[in-house]
Simulated assay, not measured.
Amino acid sequence: MFNFFKKKEQEPVKSKEVTLYAPADGELIKIEEVNDLVFAEKMMGDGFAVKPANGTITSPVDGEVTTVFPTQHAVGLLSSSLEVLLHMGIDTVSLDGKPFTTQVKEKQKLSHNDVVSKMDLAAVKAEEKETDIVVIFTNGDEVIKSFELTKTGMVSKGEEVGKVFLK
């Protein structure tokens, strides 16, 4: 049988919404509750945080790794057109990567259940740093129409916690 109709290669359709997932087991809080003015006042963008119960950190979105910081305290992700910064701990850049074991690399595709990093919570606390896992939308002003958290309180990593609706 002959196929006379060639299928055109189509551009992948960019989603108009991005589902958000808890990046750790623990207590989900609003970004305004993070004990750091840069995050709480949304200087880097809107988002949310989780006070982790353990050190396994997973991706908060389905997407691609765009950046792994040399100090391993943060990972940049892209989901549709939404840029997401996954920041592990508060003021942890000064720890020079010691309490982190990053398990992803740039250009790697991730689903929300994939482990991004292992964080030694005791080591972070021993340095008198907070362990909050902060999820920030760094280009939100450009691409977000609205953002809603549908869950607060105790969450499990990989659990759906909200949505971002894109312009």
Score class of each variant (00 low, 15 high):
T67I: 12
G26D: 09
A123Q: 11
H73D: 03
K51L: 09
S146D: 12
K14L: 15
V115P: 02
Q103I: 13
V84E: 05
E9S: 15
K167S: 14
E9Y: 06
S80P: 12
N139C: 03
V161N: 05
G26F: 11
S117A: 13
V50H: 00
V115T: 15
K129F: 01
G153C: 09
S81V: 13
P52Q: 11
T92P: 05
E83L: 01
E148V: 11
L110C: 02
I144L: 11
E148R: 10
M43R: 09
D91A: 05
V50L: 02
V115R: 08
V18E: 10
H73S: 05
S81E: 15
N113M: 10
E160C: 02
P99E: 09
Q10R: 14
E27T: 14
E142K: 14
I29S: 08
S81C: 07
F137P: 03
A22D: 06
T58W: 02
I31D: 13
A24F: 00
G76C: 04
E106R: 00
E128L: 06
T152R: 02
Q108A: 07
F48N: 00
V18C: 07
G47H: 00
F100S: 12
K51R: 09
K151W: 04
K16Q: 14
F100K: 06
H112C: 05
G158K: 05
T150P: 06
D141S: 07
F165D: 06
T150S: 13
K157C: 13
P12T: 11
L37A: 15
I57T: 10
E41T: 15
V134C: 02
F39V: 13
A49M: 07
V50M: 01
N3Q: 12
T150G: 10
A122D: 13
T131N: 04
I57F: 00
K7G: 10
E106W: 00
G26R: 08
S156K: 14
S15G: 14
K107N: 00
V13I: 15
F48L: 03
T58G: 01
S81D: 14
D96K: 15
L78F: 05
E159R: 03
F39H: 03
V34Y: 04
L37I: 15
E128C: 06
V38Q: 06
P70L: 05
T152K: 04
E33T: 11
V104L: 02
D120E: 10
K7Q: 14
L77I: 06
H112I: 12
T138H: 02
F137D: 03
D114W: 02
G140W: 01
A126E: 11
V115C: 02
M88Y: 00
L85A: 09
V104R: 01
V161S: 07
E160M: 12
L95M: 15
F5R: 12
T58D: 01
E17R: 13
